[in-house]
Nucleic acid binder design. Structure first.
Lengths: 275, 275
DNA sequence: ATTTTCGTGACTGCTTTCATTCATTGAAAC
DNA sequence: GTTTCAATGAATGAAAGCAGTCACGAAAAT
């Protein structure tokens, strides 16, 4: 009964690559196409793999962090624009501290390939820079939250206490006149440590975050140096923010049939990472 | 010029899912199949995605660390077998410390889906467990080596000094009668800290590692509890190892037309994780 | 020994996907 | 205003993949 063994080999093969063409599997396992198809059907029934035209897709252990799957395109455009604006204000050679929000992740993507020192507690962000020779990467350790992939806990905070960075880029779940709010209790503490470690604090948040509170208070507006938001932010909020001594950077939303957000290249994306 | 924008959206869509059918993309982006095909061609040229029959496979942001690209199939079979044997000797509920070698990575893959606490300094290993609800993950922080994706430096060592784990799984670049050797100076220090943190030390190394020294001495054989190796290990070495008080576990290489390696199930795979 | 069962591989239409070509469109350039 | 050019969408024949069927052989059951 080597059927089971072959299927184990098969799923293993698929897991390593994330995807395998039917043809590859025939060659690899030395059985007929029909047999592979039957194996695939069986494995799909078990939920271990997902068939596609011409191949199989692994549907098991690849880390798909739930927080990053939501991303409705609407919010996403704003996040992208904000991230581009924030990335602009960061110069080469800086030491940048990035937290683990989705908007911050977009900022991180814009920074891939730049000459920077990056400090982060976010596993997804770290992955972006891990193989980049031009970026030094320092990862804060600690307990990794399964949903968001960020490192939390006393170890992260303690290490942060001993670091100093030129710029901290922070996200927020809510912003009011009182200050920033976040949805995660432990994360709030880590973010406070991040604020203390920074020479300059940039907060990235789309306009929907304003006027909303969230679970825990993180910090007052006075600790923020710059706030990047999309252009849908009402004037009233702009006044509140600037009155608190925060420099407000507005990222223009790319409306339909309009060109690139601001400057040189249209929209930096994954190409930069793989170049 | 919204071509770029659409392609960014496209690659983003693909990135989130890992794979997307052409049909999905047509629906999502609201353009014709032809356009999607052209986009896919362009993105494939850039290396951001890989086309398959009926869809696209994301090939961008997953960390392509040079060390993990080598993997000649020959060594790899041995590593696989060794990893399977090592994973067997780990029980559910243990706290396991994994270092950053490629063999250790294989062990980690075998452990995905198990109920464990995992501690690691390796980014690739952390990625395996990041989204697993059944595995608690603790990441050691520090400076991330671009080539191997492991966290190094005093911070990692210091944190290790305060941890205790039931089992440490360690790899080695060379093994002689004197002990273990490793190729990276900073890593040696971190591995020494790992040894001190462990109640039980398992070293995974294929037979080609024996008799070879490497840059730095890590530890004597007496600190090792178990050593997992493939069955090509000469008898002379087996004696040396066991004489040093190390329990030797031999992983049978699955030869052609031979059955399952050892006991019950052939090779623990994704079924376990997804069951 | 015979029968049954199961896994396997080959074959056959049928469906889906692919690459190529061509006409249209809309914006920029002249 | 006209030209130019890139981008798009539709259409076509070719190629690839798919489900279903059948026959063969080995192992298990009778």
């Amino acid at each position: 009964m080597q059927t089971q063994q072959r299927r184990s080999k098969l799923i293993e093969f698929v897991r390593v690559r994330g995807f395998a063409a039917l043809e590859d599997l025939v060659r690899e396992l030395g059985v007929s196409e029909s047999t592979i198809r039957r194996d695939l059907d069986a494995l799909e029934d078990q939920g271990a793999a997902k068939r596609t035209h011409g191949g199989v897709l692994y549907s098991g252990g690849i880390p798909r962090l739930s927080e990053f799957d939501e991303r409705e395109p609407a919010n996403w455009a704003a996040k992208r624009a904000i991230a581009a604006r924030a990335a602009e204000s960061i110069s080469d050679g800086e030491t940048v501290l990035l937290d683990g929000g989705t908007t911050t992740y977009e900022v991180a993507r814009q920074l891939v390939g730049r000459s920077l020192q990056v400090v982060t507690n976010s596993l997804p962000v770290a992955n972006l820079f891990a193989s980049q020779a031009r970026t030094d990467l320092v990862l804060l350790g600690g307990y990794v939250s399964p949903r968001t992939g960020v490192c939390l806990g006393p170890y992260a905070n303690e290490l942060l206490g001993r670091l100093h960075v030129t710029t901290t880029v922070l996200s927020a779940a809510g912003i009011t006149a009182e200050g920033l709010f976040n949805a995660h209790l432990l994360l709030a503490e880590t973010e406070q440590a991040m604020l203390r470690a920074a020479g300059r604090v940039i907060v990235v948040a789309d306009s929907s975050k304003f006027g909303r509170k969230s679970l825990t208070f993180v910090s007052g507006l006075d600790t923020i140096d710059q706030l990047v938001c999309d252009d849908a932010l009402p004037a009233a909020w702009r006044e509140i923010v600037t009155a608190a001594g925060v420099e407000l950077l507005i990222a223009p939303l790319p409306r339909a049939s309009e060109g690139a957000p601001s400057g040189s290249r249209p929209i930096p994306t994954a190409e930069d990472a793989s170049a």
